[in-house]
Nucleic acid binder design. Structure first.
Length: 563
RNA sequence: CGAGGUGUAGCGCAGCUGGCUAGCGCGCCUGCUUUGGGAGCAGGAUGCCGCGGGUUCAAAUCCUGUCACCUCGACCA
């Protein structure tokens, strides 16, 4: 790449539009450009880095015998109507009509078509196992695109699917894919953890997520590192913090709490810690109001509630409904005398003489005990807190945030049944094909790598995915000796297939150095005044020291460095 | 979808309560000087002031509609 003849630009200042370090740096480096909300152009230099990630993934997929194919993005809506997912995706699906007014959608994910493709080749147990994958653009109308390439509306996903005849086969396929994912993310230089995750409404058997550790991660990872425990907050179970309270139960009484609605306000008013309170939250679950009880300092885990009740939709009640079911404005709900199902968190069942809302404006009850109201279910429905005991009992958990760069999923047979994907066994009996699905977002990986490898002003690409391996910078392009040496090194390194950039622009050295650092060239050869001594300078960007090399040895030294 | 904000040159922005030929910095072009960490001097180009309608003698500025983008929230395989 000869810069004077290339599409290349950088921005000198931080961009206003980007809310993440990676988004800012990638835009400033001229690698990506926002086209519309959540949709990006991938410019030449960005594409080079992206391709390297794609290549890593493709190599690892091919190595485990998964076969690549490509599915369409434009799909008749009917395909998703039949599987029941047209409804479940709802507004997050882009939909359009053709000239005959037939409804189409832009595919948000491709299980349906993969099942169809699998069905063509799979009839007998002799046809299994099989594994397929693709890199395909997905379209999801996200309500709020964010963080540069991390949450977007149009993105390429590498999605893979395994097809096996039984659970044992699935375990084997899953393990192969899982190991391949480890190798791929390791090669990208990502710091990540694998967490157990929610299997969602699909009813799958196991879901694990590869989470790149990052402060801007949208997922909360619950970890106990010494014992290897790692779970997404959504599925991290809580264990009881102790035995039921042995405190003597007092009769409850009503207490005025003027203008105190939130737990903090009431706690401050009564001068008691939040742990002495029970929060009563009104939720609408599959259309029905429910009262959920958690300790004052705890939060509801909505995913746990759905799983517990085997429901699919949960939403906090609005102010009108709260008033309807509690007879009071928001802030004074309590379990005593309420006429809807009451679900109590396990931790509440250990408490005694606690405080709840009185279902009346500016009133709370104190010294409430379990016998003072009815509850329909007692279960773990809260979010675990940092410092709580890990469910394996090994110690207190800590939190980190993660960017979900990959997901592996044991789907089981449920999905194949829905898709009508069956095979015949040796005894001529039909069985559903056992599926697994596995996804990686390469561009999200790209962003996660930049999030993890930067110093705020420049991208410090890991060697294997740096779009430019060597930047050759002649300091003064009016100096013929420097130009000649730079040109010679450029030719030598190009000949061995390296990604070389020759900065032959008529710019000052400072501009070139800054640009090469911003885009994250892995190393830089400076061809400057030392050419008169027959030497050039080699610097790995991000490291302090530079070394002086004889011109004749430079190319070979760099090949070693990049090997 | 709810609340708030912003649309003015390639980029970042100023343009006050209604008024002159729409400005500044960076970038860009020309020339000279400079050439190892975002150079200096001189000259120059660039605007459907997001879009539509209205008020007015006069609108970037006021009113209205609309679109786009951003922030917070809701939502999210």
């Amino acid at each position: 790449m000869r810069l004077s003849e290339s599409y290349f630009y950088t921005l000198r200042e931080d961009v206003k539009d980007e809310d993440s370090v990676s988004g800012n740096l990638l835009v400033r480096a001229g690698m990506i450009k926002k086209s519309s909300s959540g949709v990006y152009m991938l410019l030449p230099l960005g594409l080079k880095a992206y391709r390297k990630i794609e290549t890593i993934i493709r190599e690892e997929m091919d190595a485990i015998g998964s076969q690549e194919l490509t599915m369409p993005a434009l799909i008749p809506e009917e395909v998703y109507v039949r599987s029941g997912r047209r409804e479940s995706f709802g507004d997050s699906m882009f939909s359009l009509k053709d000239r005959f007014n037939r409804p189409f959608v832009l595919g948000p994910t491709h299980e349906e078509l993969f099942a169809a493709a699998a069905g063509m080749a799979i009839n007998s147990y002799k046809d299994l196992p099989v594994s397929l994958y693709q890199f395909q653009t997905k379209y999801r109308d996200e309500p709020r695109p964010r963080f540069g390439l991390i949450r977007v509306r149009e993105f390429v996903m590498k999605d893979a699917y395994s097809f096996d005849k039984d659970l044992e086969g699935l375990d084997h396929s899953y393990k192969k894919m899982f190991d391949a994912y480890h190798r791929a993310f390791d090669r990208m230089g990502l710091r990540y953890v694998v967490v157990r995750a929610d299997t969602g409404v699909m009813g799958g058997l196991l879901s694990e997520e590869f989470q790149a550790v990052s402060e801007i991660g949208e997922d909360i990872l619950v970890l106990h590192e010494p014992s290897g425990y790692a779970a997404n907050l959504e599925v991290a179970n809580c264990i009881p913090s102790g035995e039921p309270s042995t405190e003597k139960h007092l009769p409850f009484e009503e207490m005025p709490t003027p203008n105190a609605k939130t737990i903090e306000e009431v706690a401050a008013f009564l001068d008691l810690p939040a742990e002495k309170f029970v929060k009563t939250l009104i939720y609408v679950i599959d259309g029905e109001p429910h009262a959920l009880l958690v300790r004052g300092d705890h939060e509801i885990n909505e995913a746990k509630v759905l799983k517990l009740l085997n429901k699919s939709e949960i939403e906090m009640a609005d102010a009108t409904l709260v008033r309807e079911v509690t007879d009071a404005p928001v802030g004074f709900a309590g379990p005593i005398g309420i006429d809807i199902p009451v679900i109590m968190d396990t931790e509440v069942s250990l408490m005694a003489n606690f405080i709840v809302g009185a279902n009346q404006l500016d009133r709370h009850f104190v010294n409430v005990n379990l016998e003072d109201f009815k509850s329909d279910v007692v279960a773990d429905i809260r979010q675990i807190k940092e410092g709580d005991m890990c469910e394996n009992g090994a110690g207190p958990v800590s939190f980190k945030r993660g960017i979900e760069v990959g997901n592996t999923f044991k789907l089981g047979e449920k999905y194949a049944r829905a898709m009508d994907l069956f095979y015949t066994d040796a005894d001529n009996v039909q069985h559903p094909v056992i599926m697994g699905s596995y996804g990686i977002g390469p561009a999200r990986c790209l962003a996660a790598v930049v999030e993890q490898h930067n110093d705020g002003k420049r991208i410090l690409w890991p060697k294997e995915i740096a779009p430019i391996e060597v930047a050759i910078v002649p300091v003064n392009v009016k100096n013929e000796d420097q130009v000649a040496v730079a040109e010679q090194l450029y030719q030598e390194l190009m000949a061995t297939g390296h990604d070389v950039l020759l900065d032959d622009r008529n710019e000052r050295a400072g501009i070139k150095f800054n640009d090469m650092e911003l885009i994250g060239a892995y190393c830089r050869i400076t061809v400057g005044r030392t050419v008169t001594e027959g030497k050039v300078e080699l610097k790995v960007i991000g490291r302090e020291e530079a070394e002086l090399l004889p011109i004749a040895e430079a190319a070979e030294r760099i090949r070693q460095l990049l090997a």
